[in-house]
């Protein structure tokens, strides 16, 4: 049997909701695949959309941005800014032919450990279906 493709996913999480939610999934010993690598920021508002473009260049097969539910941002509004920015970024990526399953966003609160597990599973499955990201991955040779 052919070896199953294991996608590599970079996830940007806000400290107050999603990162805490991911911690809770751990405290509750919920199991999920190890394909997701987390970058902690204080707020989804901090996540420059170009970080996502950069992650793809670096070779990520999928990118996830996760923060507090609307109205629950620790800094009141950061997630609203993020929502607009990433809605547009995703449209742009898809327009240039990047598979829409590669970029996702989620709202996971500090109490939603189980939701975090589901989000990871879903994001991994989607990236797996989309396959390895080659389109504009940075070739390290020649640099």
């Amino acid at each position: 049997m052919e070896e199953r493709f294991e996608p590599n996913i970079v996830a940007f999480l806000c400290n107050w909701c999603s990162y805490a939610g991911a911690d809770l999934a751990g405290t509750s010993r919920m199991q999920y695949p190890p394909n997701v690598h987390i970058v902690r920021v204080m707020c989804t508002g901090r996540i420059n959309p170009l970080f996502v473009v950069n992650a793809f260049q670096q070779g990520a097969d999928g990118v996830l941005v996760s923060g507090c539910h609307p109205g629950e941002c620790h800094y009141r509004e950061g997630n609203y800014h993020a929502r607009r920015r990433f809605t547009l970024l995703r449209e742009l990526l898809v327009f240039t032919g990047v598979d829409r399953r590669r970029f996702n966003m989620s709202w996971v609160s500090a109490s939603e450990g189980a939701k975090w597990r589901e989000v990871v599973r879903e994001a991994v499955e989607m990236a797996r279906e989309a396959g390895p990201f080659e389109q504009f991955r940075r070739e390290m040779i020649g640099w």
């Binding site: 911690d23 999934a25 751990g26 010993r29 999920y32 695949p33 190890p34 987390i38 902690r40 597990r117």
Partner: peptide, 20 residues
């Protein structure tokens, strides 16, 4: 580096968890 809540506690497979 969070290797407990976001690694050892959520991944059962030793080689996968170690790589992460």
């Amino acid at each position: 580096a969070n290797i407990r809540e976001q690694c050892s506690w959520v991944h059962g497979d030793r080689s996968g968890a170690t790589a992460k």
